[in-house]
Design a protein around this nucleic acid. Structure first.
Ligand SMILES: [Mn+2]
Ligand SMILES: [Mn+2]
Ligand SMILES: [Zn+2]
Ligand SMILES: [Zn+2]
Lengths: 147, 147
DNA sequence: CCTTAATTGAAAATGAATATCAATTTCTTT
DNA sequence: AAAGAAATTGATATTCATTTTCAATTAAGG
């Protein structure tokens, strides 16, 4: 699936969600959503706002917060908090769930997935009588450049 | 080791840290530290402040924040954030590191430890060129009462 | 077009945590 | 015991991310 087709898919998905919930399509929402869908990082509000204002001037920060909340509700964005007090957003990964390793020196964020860990989490929870809905696994340390 | 001996140990440990850093012993610090050391939950600032004021009236919230920061620096307290925007504190576990399962309905927090998971974390990080310093693993779901 | 309901941005409000600062207290030295 | 230096305290102000408020604007459907 090409980047462009992927973008179109996500825009259409958002549109469908908005239609189903009596929400209106606006230039601000389109701008913010498109910038977000095109981003492939863990982007924060500041970056989104800056980029959005280049396309559509005078966008307020409340609108960015509101639009990201909408994207989260519609399942297209995933909020992440890596401990520095600001929320970051990433696109719903097409290849499934992943966890993160964060460098405590340069802040580089690397994604990984270990199915053995995932399975052991469920097993641990089961032993304790819990039914897991989601989880957060973050490793903090030094990347190979900072090591 | 009895609870009382444990409390005395921790108080002495704090005292040693304060001595080594030219910090002074005060009634407020003693009150907050003792309340914290006696707590066996993941206690938040509000609870600490309420309990502290019963023993030593007029304690300011800034003092509780400052004392908890001191306890963290001295290695006696561990700060935890379970996603509800407020920091919780727990005593340095005597039996080593553990992770948490949190019920998303009743907020019950259960501790667990899985050495296989711990080992796999290091292994995953190593493959990516990272040296892990610490990590955060939280499972969210329903406990057996809420499930 | 018209009507209605949703949306927007500026500004105010919130809530957790930190900083400021004058007054108080501790600890060491006479 | 008194004094002085340095640390501590609590009230208050401040910061920072996020949310709320609200009057004005805009989208959508008939
Ligand atoms: Mn990611
Ligand atoms: Mn714990
Ligand atoms: Zn790095
Ligand atoms: Zn529960």
């Amino acid at each position: 699936m090409s980047n462009n087709a992927d973008l179109e898919n996500r825009m259409a998905s958002l549109k469908a969600y908005m239609d189903a919930n009596h929400l209106k399509s606006t230039a601000q929402r389109d701008t913010i959503a498109e910038i977000f869908f095109k981003s492939n990082t863990h982007i924060n509000l500041e970056e989104l706002l800056t980029k959005a204002r280049k396309k559509t001037a005078k966008i307020g920060h409340a609108t960015v917060y509101r639009t990201m909340k909408l994207l989260i509700e519609s399942g297209l964005a995933v909020p992440r908090q890596f401990g520095d007090g600001q929320t970051r957003y990433e696109n719903l990964p097409r290849d499934g769930h992943h966890d993160h390793i964060i460098c405590i020196k340069c802040s580089k964020i690397t994604e990984f997935r270990n199915d053995e860990i995932e399975a052991l989490q469920l097993e641990s929870a089961k032993k304790l009588g819990f039914k897991v809905i989601n989880h957060k696994l973050e490793l903090y340390g030094y990347c190979n450049s900072c090591g």
